[in-house]
Write a protein that binds this DNA or RNA. Structure first.
Lengths: 194, 194
DNA sequence: CGACGCCTTGATAAATGTCAAACGTCGTGG
DNA sequence: CCACGACGTTTGACATTTATCAAGGCGTCG
């Protein structure tokens, strides 16, 4: 199935009927609060699976960040298949644990400073969708801000700071050239304490 | 196995050899950054399972918040059993998805204001370990702060605010009487946007 | 060419963190 | 039994970070 930019793929509160695998494009999971604030739970790219939840309703809605094609699988069917296929069952478990790990990482990141969050974001995206040192972001500054729990302005200022420090360069606002990965990594205090 | 207060149950970076089920007590998962900041990934209580991760190493260490007894299970054994037991396999999957949901909720909470985080924390703990309207917290203010991404002082001030508003009362610093749950819930703007 | 949306930059305000001190509780020892 | 000391918590004054409000620039698409 295809979804245009900004289109809702599934809505918060809807029953979990399908699981989705992204063929191409990018998807964000979104929660909108009653006062208008918006939070993004995560971004998903080609090859990623989302919408696989245990509860009966989706806890977040999902929207296409850019025009995307998505493979839709019936949840019941998947669970049914897994009952007979040990390997598939293991894959599902692995996937769920990866999702948990990603959410945990997201949570830990949100407890850090704006600078660290942006650094972490750039590194995360670099791992997931960069081509060499070239990173093309499909999402807006507002999307990034809502994912990082910051404002668009703070994100923008922080990115500007990275270009000033020559850690990255920014040929277009959504294209990042990584010039100094170690500077990004090292600015992240995260270290296993001995 | 028994662990005394503050004891490490498993360390960050260690291989994932065991999975743990809490029989009694309380456990926190912890990450310490190189500059001394500490983050708490989650709290676990009697009946909860923790340490079930996919990667080869634990991403966080786990410590007993209070003296606790924990059942230790070999991870390999569990996976092996699940291969033959469809029901167990499903339970594991459900558990992993619940863990993911909890982490997602934690992340969304960290993007909110101090007031909302504390409200959410009180409600979460109320759901998990309160007896009626009486909530006895096993963890210190510092633990709460590290879980909420705030400072101890901010947590303390916010809790004081709740007592002033008669939303709760605080006979002892670690004992909370819930006087007005709806005030807590309503102060949380989280609503499915229509 | 013009208008619109997105991004950046600037000035100021609000929230939260930092540093420091006082308070209370609890356990210990006189 | 009371006094003391240690530790966790609360409170206060002030600093810093980030948000808010507002304006300007820049690129894109009609």
């Amino acid at each position: 199935m295809k979804f245009g930019e900004g289109t809702e793929i599934c809505g918060e509160g809807e029953p979990v009927e399908f699981v989705y695998e992204i063929v191409s494009g990018a998807v964000r999971t979104v929660k909108v609060l009653s006062d208008g604030r918006r939070e993004i739970g995560g971004f998903y790219f080609a090859g990623d699976i989302f919408g696989f939840e245990d509860d009966n309703e989706h806890s977040l809605s999902a929207e296409a960040v850019v025009a995307s094609t998505v493979r839709v699988i019936r949840r019941r069917r998947l669970v049914h298949l897994a009952a007979d296929d040990r390997k598939l069952a293991e894959e599902l478990l692995t996937m769920a644990m990866h999702e948990a790990a990603r959410a945990h990482r997201h949570a830990l990141m949100l407890a850090m400073t704006a600078q660290e969050r942006v650094n972490d974001f750039v590194l995360e995206m670099a791992e997931r969708i960069s081509v060499g040192d070239l990173l093309r972001l499909p999402m807006s500054r507002q999307d990034i801000a809502d994912y990082l729990g910051l404002t668009m302005e703070t994100v923008s200022r922080t990115i500007t700071g990275l270009t000033v420090a020559s850690t990255i360069s920014l040929p277009y606002s959504r294209t990042i050239m990584l010039r100094n990965r170690s500077a990004l990594e090292q600015a992240m205090a995260a270290t296993p304490a001995l």
